[in-house]
Design a protein around this nucleic acid. Structure first.
Length: 552
RNA sequence: GCCCUCGUAGCUCAGUGGAUAGAGCAUCCCCCUCCUAAGGGGAGGGUCACACGUUCGAUUCGUGUCGAGGGCACCA
């Protein structure tokens, strides 16, 4: 675990002390100093704008306040020179060389654990994602879900949470029946029987494939008359295919939860009974309704239809009740934005259960739909029509690393365009290679040096005085806070953006300076810095589930 | 009609209550007798959709308008 205290926090603490000295009235923590990074590097490494924020409260001019704070600043080896007061009252700070480079020692001390912390305090958290119905192969949308969900799980693990990955699937509903009927129709078709294709059936080629396999395995039922057997066969086949896809994507689940078990274990009935007993329901038009409007939904929802069957959202609520009862004080659900309608209902249902579940439970991370372009035209993704791009195709043709990185490098709620032709023909332009290349370059340099890497871990870093070295060390020091931020925001793309930036600094450095040089002290210092950079690149790629190759 | 997300460079997208809004691709120019050119340096390219409000300060927060995508069934 990392014991590294980042420079930002250290500086904030320093200024908090100075503020309390200069203005004793604010000593009780009434005002928290915020340290920010200026966009313009000429303004220093860090800036404090508290003087502007306090001007009104203290009835003084910002620049006078800034001067008072700076004058009260305790001596510290963190700061290189007396901070500047600039513009209307910004305090601009430059780090000392020692402050900049001390991160390198922490990186070597923590190694593969650099960037981890105990924020999660070992609390159990469930991340549910993908949760595709076993009615067809996984497609690009599921790929985005898998990459985002798995990265979230990794991020939370790094923050010290006890993470469980869960895949929930509907193995009993109407859609499964449609699947069975679709395979049945294909079976009868190949037997030369007149078989109308079911309305709402699945048209993909894979349906014929399942029919072929079924006929091969059950030669005495080539017309698919044994519907239960046929249904089970089709579901098992597709589940197996999905598992293979996910495995190829390096995504593993700790648990699969079957919707059917909610019925067989009576949890759906129990949930309904509980809601009725709580007085949260009413009968109308022969149906049973839940008063979800009491909890912010825009209309009440039917729980039990007039035909006696339940609507899908009842098992959804029952399922989330089990998450709470299984001890997950925190649950995150990664969903396609096309399902966002269920969000308010599930939360309302949980509140109506009145069992102590927090109002915002569970957290949702929604990813927007992907627009897929192929041959310059948009591909309409439709499972039922059988037109889509499968995850398998992407992995085979673009590669696992590139696909994962691509899905995770943009905000989940941005609608992204995936140009299949571009991804295939120019996969070397995928930004993941830029990051991986930085890692491979460092490996190559170290291999050519051929020395003992452990010696680098205690190298004297004082010769590192160039701008490139300063930029690189400060970027390295940002890594732990970046991960924390990404985990807090449930936003994996923050890690990808950071890695791109870190790689850019390494590449600039590489082109500007040589590492394998005559000056022994400078050489060791540079190799030490570069070795630390390799470690951070590797750790960051690990969080994204992307490999860190030694050669490319 | 109601709800959610989004609107930033030609394209794909980052980003921020602060001082000159960034990257990649595309266009143009430069850099390998030298640790991997899958790289680097530079140029051009912007009314941060629009309006109003909050604020010392808004591209960022709020409201409204317009535009894009999605969701609004006793479908799942």
């Amino acid at each position: 675990m990392s014991t590294f205290i980042d420079n930002k926090s250290a500086i904030a603490a320093l200024f908090q002390t100075a503020l309390a000295t200069a203005y004793p009235a604010l000593a009780d923590g009434a005002f928290m100093i915020e340290v920010e990074k200026p966009k313009n590097p000429d303004h220093g490494h860090f800036a404090v704008n508290s003087a502007l924020q306090l001007a009104k409260k203290l009835g003084a001019k910002p620049c006078d306040i800034a001067e008072a704070i700076v004058a009260a600043l305790p001596a510290s080896d963190l700061i290189a020179t007396q901070p500047d007061i600039a513009g209307p009252g910004f305090i601009n700070i430059r780090l000392s060389l020692a402050a900049e480079t001390r991160v390198v020692g922490s990186i070597f001390a923590d190694g593969d654990n650099f960037g981890k912390n105990h924020t999660g305090a070992n609390q159990s958290v469930m991340v549910e994602f993908v949760s595709a119905n076993p009615t067809g192969p996984l497609h690009v949308g599921h790929g985005r879900a898998a990459a985002i969900g798995d990265t979230l799980a990794r991020l939370l693990t790094w923050q010290g949470y006890q993470v469980s990955r869960e895949f929930y699937y509907n193995d009993a509903g109407v859609q499964i029946n449609n699947l069975m009927l679709s395979v049945q129709a294909r079976l009868r078709e190949r037997s030369g029987l007149d078989a109308p294709f079911p309305e709402g059936g699945y048209h993909g080629e894979y349906i014929r494939e399942i029919a072929e396999r079924y006929a091969g395995k059950f030669p005495d039922d080539v017309s698919g008359n044994h519907e239960d057997t046929l249904r089970d066969f089709a579901v098992a086949y597709l589940r197996h295919e999905q598992d293979l896809d996910l495995k190829a994507f390096e995504v593993q689940f700790d648990h699969h939860y079957l919707e059917s078990s909610l019925y067989t274990e009576g949890l759906v009935e129990k949930t309904v009974a509980h809601l009725v007993a709580n007085g949260k329901t009413y009968e109308q038009d022969g149906a049973l309704w839940l008063k979800t409007t009491d909890y912010g939904d825009d209309k009440d929802r039917v729980m039990r239809k007039s035909d006696g069957t339940f609507t899908y959202f009842v098992p959804d609520v029952a399922y989330h009740v089990t998450k709470w009862q299984r001890g997950f004080k925190r649950a995150i659900v990664e969903l396609g934005a096309d399902h966002h309608g269920s969000l308010a209902r599930v939360r309302a249902g949980l509140q109506a259960m009145d069992m102590g579940v927090p109002v915002g439970y569970p957290d949702y991370v929604l990813h927007q739909m992907i627009t897929v372009m192929r041959g310059g035209e948009e591909v309409k993704i439709s499972k039922r029509a059988g037109s889509y791009v499968t995850l398998r195709e992407l992995i085979d043709e673009v590669g696992r690393d590139a696909t994962r990185y691509f899905f995770v490098m943009r905000k989940a709620d941005s609608q992204l365009t995936f140009d299949i032709d571009l991804a295939r023909s120019k996969s070397e332009e995928n930004p993941v290679y830029y990051v991986q290349y930085a890692h491979a370059r460092i490996c190559s340099v170290l291999a050519q040096w051929g020395g003992d890497e452990t010696a680098l871990k205690s190298a004297d870093l004082s010769p590192l005085t160039s701008k490139y070295e300063s930029d690189l060390t400060r970027a390295l020091a940002d890594f732990p806070l970046t991960l924390k931020h990404a985990a807090h925001e449930l936003a994996p793309h923050i890690v990808a953006v950071y890695l791109g930036d870190l790689a850019a600094k390494l590449h600039s450095y590489y082109n500007a300076e040589r590492f394998l040089i005559e000056d022994e002290k400078l050489k060791l210092a540079r190799l030490s810095l570069v070795l630390a950079t390799r470690q951070v690149l590797k750790n960051g790629l690990t969080v994204l589930g992307v490999s860190a190759p030694e050669k490319m």
